[in-house]
Amino acid sequence: MARKPSDYQSDIWNDWCPGCGDFGIVAAMYRAFSELDLPPEKTVIVSGIGCSGKTPHFVKVNGVHTLHGRAIPFATGIKLANPELTVIVNGGDGDLLGIGVGHFVALGRRNIDLTIILHNNTVYGLTKGQASPTLRRGLRPKALPKPNIQDAVNPVSLALASGFTFVARGYSMMTEHLKELIKEAIQHKGAALIDVLQPCVTYDNIHTVEYYKKRVYKLEDTGWNPKVEKIEEKEEKIVKAWMKSQEYDDKIPIGVFYQDPHTPSFEERIKERIPSYLETPPARQKIEREGKTIIDSEAFRKIFSYYIVETE
């Protein structure tokens, strides 16, 4: 019997602000996990710091709540050591695009099979509403003493430039749509980003539910085809997706911007070098025999013969 969305709800009291967009994200995750019937013990949510960082505690799968900005490298270690796990990263905009942006870019370069759910609310919620890297210049959410004078980074554009092979945007108050994006991202073999627009009810009086309601539209309703059908199309598709990502004022597109199933995942690249990698990854190797090393003296001499000189 397939698992229900409620099977993924943990018993922990959720202390996000009433009405927070994070609830929509976690609701979409419950539904997506259920529809994919993910085994909780083979699923891992890795998060950073801040409101989004608490996500793993509210979901009944393995949860690793890490350091500010470092969810991606923690997830990288977990996934590469045991690639049979489904690993999802929940991070805020400050987390993934501020303090942790180097890891974000590096993930694109590697194309590891991870799903990144970016909680994009333009502010640092848990430290009182400072400007996040996605807050546009000139804006002044109510907690800011002065308007923001730094430019915003566009998560979709950056993901495309970094090499992510699945790039999408969702909206936390359109849970069914977001759920579908999460399912697609998890099923995609490679680095997947979902930039989730998410109103912060306490600190962001600009990007409200009303604000997004007026602007958000679905790419799929316009006949958008994000998929690189043949590898030759890659350049054309990525340029189109990037142009589309720049649309962010009166109208904000949501949906899948870009999907490239051709670029090999990092796991496949490792397998090229270590053919046994997927069958016996680091986490599933036996490293001892009755408390002794599997490399005995004889094996040692054979493996490291380069360093051993037979004397005269």
């Binding site: 969305p5 409620s6 709800q9 009291w13 959720n14 996000w16 009433p18 009405g19 609830f23 929509g24 976690v26 609701a27 979409a28 419950y30 539904r31 936390s172 108050m173 359109m174 849970t175 069914e176 977001l178 759920k179």
Partner: peptide
């Protein structure tokens, strides 16, 4: 509930994610 994915019970201070709840 189906659209936004959640409701919130103010009396219990708990999110509601499904019809049963």
């Amino acid at each position: 509930l189906s659209e936004s994915g959640f409701l919130y019970c103010v009396e219990c201070s708990r999110p509601i994610f499904n019809e049963e709840e």
